[in-house]
Nucleic acid binder design. Structure first.
Lengths: 209, 209
DNA sequence: TCACAAACCGACAGGCTTGACTGTTTGTCG
DNA sequence: CGACAAACAGTCAAGCCTGTCGGTTTGTGA
C-alpha cells in the first residue's frame, strides 16, 4: 500500500532520497549534464544501484526530482542571502545577487536549463519551476533594490537587472570574470540610482515566501 | 608529406570536413551536447564513419574544430547583421543584437559553452575564441550604438548591454520570451539614450574585422 | 509473534558510443 | 603509366549506461 496508509516511519527512506538528489546536483555541478550518469550519482550518494532504482525508476524520474530539489535549494539560498543584505545599498545588493548567479547552485541550474532546451521531458519539469523561482527572484530583487513597481518602467528595469546578472553568471561559468563583473555592476548601480531615484533608508529586504 | 609540400588539390577533402563541422553544429543545435554522438554527426553529414575518423581522429578533435568553425560562422553572421543596420536607432540595434543571441548559432555556442565548463579540453578550445569574438562583438556594438568609449563609464555600459543580451538569450533558450524581451530592451534603450546621449545620425556601423 | 510490504542489494542483458583496424578508391607526382 | 599517399568505407571490440529482475533485510501493523 502506498504512503497514504502507512505513515513513513522510515525517515531513512527520505534521507536516501535526499542523498541521491544532492548527489545528482553535485554531479551536475562537477561533471555537467553529459557527464552525469545514474551510476555516478548512486556511487556519489553512497547508495546501491538497486536502492536508487527503487526510489527513482528511471533517469528521467531522478532528474525531474533533482530539478525540483534544486529549485527549493536555490530559493532557500536566495532568501538567506537577501536576509543578510544591507537594504538600499544598491551596489552591495547587485553584488550579492551576482554571487547567487555564480554559485554552484546556479551552475547546476544552468546545466539543467541548457539540457532542457533539447529534452522535452526535462523541459516540462524545468519550465514551470523556473517561472516560479523567476517570480520569487523578481520579488526579492524588487525589495532589495528598493524599487517601486507602480512606477512605469520600473518592472522592466528590474527584469533587465536580473537578465543582466544571468548573463554575467553565464559568462562566469566559462572564465572567472569577477573583476569585470564588479565594474559592470558598479556602473549599473549608478544607472539604477538615477533611474529609480535614491534608495530610501527605510526599505528592508523582505523575503517574500 | 604534409600539406606544405602537396598543395591540397583535393577540394573535396575540405568539403567533407565542412560537411562534418556543419553537421556537428547542427547536432548541437538539435540534440544538445549530450545528444551529439560522433555516429550521429557522420550520419547527418552523409559521411562514412571511416572518413570521419580520417579527418577527426577523436571526438575531441571534431568538437575542437567545430568550436572554431562556429566562431567563424558567428562572427560572419554578426557582421552581416550589423551591415544592414540603421545605425543610431538604438532600439532597433538592440533588437538586432538580441536576435543574434537567440539564433541557432547562439544555441550551439551555448551548448559548447556550458559543456566547456566541466571539460578542460573543450574549455581550452572555447575560451580563447570566445574572448576573441567577445571583443569583436563589443566593437560592433560600440559602433552600432554610437557610443564613445573615451567617455568614462561607456565601456562598462556597453559590456552591460551585451551581458544583458546574453542573459536574455539564455532565457529564450528555455522558453520563448520574445514579448518580454522586447519590453525589456525598449526600456534599456531609453536608459542608453539618457546615459550615452542621443545618437548622432552620422554614425554608421562599421564591421571591424 | 507472524505476515507483509517497503527499503535495499547486486548481477545481468541489451543497446549505444568510441576509436582501432583493414581494405578500397582516387588522384597526383615522378 | 606506374607508384604512392591521401580520402574514403565499413567492421569489430571494449566499455559504459540504462533499466530489469530475483533475492535479502528491516520494521510495522495485526
Amino acid at each position: 500500500m502506498p504512503t497514504s496508509t502507512r505513515v513513513p516511519q522510515e525517515e531513512r527512506s527520505r534521507a536516501t532520497r535526499l542523498r541521491l538528489l544532492d548527489a545528482a546536483v553535485g554531479c551536475l555541478v562537477e561533471f555537467g549534464y553529459a557527464g552525469t550518469s545514474t551510476t555516478l550519482v548512486s556511487e556519489r550518494a553512497g547508495v546501491s544501484r538497486g536502492a536508487q532504482l527503487h526510489h527513482f525508476p528511471s533517469k528521467a524520474d531522478l532528474l525531474a526530482a533533482a530539478v525540483e530539489h534544486l529549485a527549493t535549494v536555490r530559493g532557500e539560498e536566495l532568501i538567506e542571502r537577501a536576509a543578510r543584505l544591507p537594504a538600499g545599498d544598491r551596489p552591495k545588493v547587485l553584488r550579492a545577487l551576482a554571487e547567487h548567479f555564480t554559485s554552484p547552485v546556479f551552475d547546476a541550474a544552468l546545466e539543467l536549463w541548457v539540457a532542457a532546451r533539447t529534452d522535452p521531458e526535462l523541459r516540462a519539469a524545468v519550465a514551470p519551476l523556473e517561472r516560479r523561482i523567476g517570480r520569487q527572484t523578481h520579488r526579492i530583487a524588487l525589495a532589495a533594490l528598493a524599487a517601486d513597481e507602480s512606477v512605469p518602467g520600473t518592472r522592466e528595469l528590474v527584469q533587465a537587472t536580473l537578465d543582466l546578472i544571468r548573463g554575467l553568471g553565464l559568462a562566469d561559468a566559462l572564465t572567472d570574470d569577477t573583476r569585470r563583473r564588479a565594474r559592470v555592476l558598479d556602473r549599473w548601480a549608478e544607472v539604477l540610482d538615477r533611474e529609480l531615484g535614491p534608495a530610501p533608508r527605510s526599505a528592508i529586504a523582505q523575503p517574500t515566501s
